[in-house]
Computed example of a mutant assay.
Amino acid sequence: MLLKDLLEEFILELEIQNYSPKTIKTYKSKNLNFFNYLESRFKIVKVEDVKAIQIKTYIVGLKKSQRKPSYINSIIKTFQAFFKYGVEQQYIKSNPMSEVKLLKQNTAIINVFSEDEVSRMLKTFKGNRFLEIRDKAILCTLIDTGVRCTELLNLKIADVKDNYIKIKNPKNRKDRMVSFSPYTKKAIIKYLRCRESFFINKDLKEDYLFLSYRANKLTVEAIERIVKTAGKKAGVNEQIRCSPHTCRHYYAVYSLRHGLDLYSLAVTLGHSDVSITTKYLRGIKEQEILEMSIKTSPLSDLRK
């Protein structure tokens, strides 16, 4: 069977399984790049002709081009899923990926904003114009709830409750509720009032919470620009990437520092597996862990 024909069937299966469009696009593009390599280098176009040696050669090429182990591992995982499907559907008898291992990755230290930096970022929005009020509400929501950028973009007005937001159809296809503080509630209320008066003469076709100046749904790039601009104005440490995902990191690390257990954090972040959430523990410094452990000592409440 042709590799590209099997990929087409595999992509349809991902759509049936309700994978996100972004994930499906990743699986498709990374596998297609590999197929083009196989055809140009080895004249291979059929799935049954692919061997482990060709896959390993491709990976070696990626390493020589200075690709990070994390990036290469993401590609290996797409290959694993593709060839596993081929075996399950009996298009191939053996899986060539069984001989291919993931690369060893260095443990990355998660650098997040300091509390002072977050305070300064929020203070960069001082005016009473629509964009300034909207952008502050966006930053508050990102930092106070830890939502993903795409989840923020898909929030509807009806999803905002008294002290929490309801996130529908997120990455792991499960709805969840995430609370927010009175500070964020105030920012959102102020934004909604401004939004209503700003678009008073416009027939809004969308009920998304956050809209562009022209009443359109915002883009990922727009949200990234808002966070980056706030970070630059606030003088955030240059080693920290000012992005929506860093806001999510900050939320996670801050929650752990202040006593939220790992399981509850995993539920709040929408992780399907607690092991995914453990990476945020690396954002807590040894001294902080020491101070936290003193407070939770089994004998701390005993009288002398």
Rank of each mutant, 00 (worst) to 15 (best):
I276C: 04
F210A: 05
K63Q: 15
E196P: 01
K84H: 07
K43V: 01
N106T: 04
N111D: 15
S179K: 06
E291P: 01
L12F: 05
M121N: 08
F35G: 08
K136E: 11
I76Q: 08
S212I: 03
R225Y: 00
A158Q: 12
G283C: 05
F125P: 03
V112S: 14
F113N: 09
N128L: 10
E15R: 15
N111A: 11
L2Q: 15
T278I: 11
I11C: 00
R134T: 01
S300F: 03
R214L: 08
I53S: 14
S114I: 09
S40D: 13
S272D: 11
V227G: 02
G86R: 03
G127M: 09
A187G: 07
M1A: 15
Y27P: 01
P96H: 03
S293E: 11
I76F: 04
V274N: 09
M97C: 11
R134A: 10
E15I: 14
L269C: 05
A187C: 10
D207Q: 11
D175Y: 04
T124L: 10
C140I: 01
K228V: 00
Q239W: 05
D301N: 13
Q89V: 10
G270P: 01
K168G: 02
Y19L: 14
A158V: 13
Y37P: 00
F180H: 07
D162V: 08
A222I: 00
F35R: 10
K285R: 12
L211K: 04
N128G: 08
S65C: 02
I143R: 06
N31Q: 07
G283L: 05
R248E: 06
Y164V: 02
S293M: 11
L32E: 15
I165L: 13
F199D: 11
P21M: 04
L6S: 12
I223T: 02
K217S: 10
I133E: 08
S255A: 13
S293L: 13
P96Q: 04
G283Q: 03
I289K: 13
R67Y: 14
D116R: 10
I76T: 09
N169D: 13
Q89N: 13
E151N: 10
Y250D: 03
G259Q: 09
E206A: 09
L209V: 08
I189Q: 10
T150N: 14
A108N: 12
D207C: 02
G61V: 02
L131S: 13
D159N: 15
I226H: 05
N237D: 15
